[in-house]
Amino acid sequence: MSKKVTYKDFQILKAIPAKGKVSTTHILETINKQGFELNKRTVQRDLNNLSEFFAIASDGNKDVAGWYWREDAQKLELPVMSPDVALTFKMTQNYLTQFMPPNVLAQLQPYLKQANTILNSLDNSLNNWQDKINTTSRVLPLIPPKIKSEHIEIIYQSLLKEKQLKTIYRPIKQKKKEYIMHPLGVVIVDQILYLVATLWDYEDVLQFPLHRFIDIEELAENSKKIKDFNLNNYIKQGNFLFPDKQETSIDLVLIVNQYLAQYLAESKLATNQKITKIKDDNFKITATVQLSQQLKWWLLSQGDDIEVLKPKKLRDYIKKVIINSYKKYE
């Protein structure tokens, strides 16, 4: 048997239950769900060939449950990874391994290797499915900062064991500082990994980019928990959008061109967003949104395709930034 046929045959053997009987038709349906493109005659021929090497037999009826393991069959360890599972591991390898703890990634390596072997041995649509799906971003692609692998390992272990961290950290534009941290979680934002944690006995939840750590040591003491803290809720509240601490939400009113109106009709600013057409192919947008630095960056990135009408404080801010920017080009 060739390597390619051997894997297919193992999948056929797996379709035969340890107890009871199964029909050729059922085996065919099971195999083809895994990405193979076989017909009933091929499966029947393969079953007959396999019966010469393995303890399987048929009661001679092709249309009803007839294939089974003989009573003298020894336990046979068969590959447990199906082609669709192999594809899942392959996509995990392509898109998620850079964010995994090193010890978890090390444990996955045998499965990733097996997945690659299985996919390379197939001659069906699953073999090149990974070439038909990808991800990208319209954000300017920047080279992510390097993070020491040992730092990632220590941080993930401290989260797992709920231990404190003694760290030396360099805040941006400041000298390095020593902190005692209570880790709460790790969040990935635009290829940057952040440790969410509190410091010493304070309860303020802060964010620390992992690449700014100079040294990290796990302590024996248990980390302090924050009552009712939930990482998902923390993110949903907009804490990674650099929110304005004085105003939680605003009633935003914009004037946009037709292109931007169409874009916002498909990808809304908020659930209560409304779009009204006005003169000269311009549109008025109203929405209740969180006031954040991220919102300000987005508004400025739209250039002259957008005008902020309200609130006045935000309009004045955008106007000031544009004037200051203009002066630099005079």
Rank of each mutant, 00 (worst) to 15 (best):
K8E: 13
K21A: 02
S23W: 02
K40Y: 14
K40R: 13
G60A: 14
N61E: 13
D63S: 12
T92K: 01
Y95F: 13
M100H: 02
L105D: 14
L105P: 11
A106S: 14
Y111E: 06
A115W: 09
D123T: 01
L126V: 00
L126S: 00
D131A: 03
T136K: 05
S137M: 02
L140C: 05
I143N: 15
I155D: 06
K161H: 14
K163V: 01
Q164M: 09
L165R: 00
L165A: 00
L165Y: 10
I168T: 08
Y169G: 03
V189C: 01
I192Y: 08
A197Y: 06
Y202F: 11
D204W: 05
L206R: 13
A220G: 12
N222W: 05
K224Y: 11
K227F: 05
L231A: 06
N232F: 07
L241D: 15
P243C: 06
Q246P: 04
V253E: 15
I255F: 03
N257Y: 13
A270R: 04
T271C: 00
Q290I: 01
Q293Y: 12
D305T: 02
L309E: 14
L309A: 03
K310M: 06
P311N: 06
D316N: 13
K319T: 07
S325W: 14
Y326Q: 11
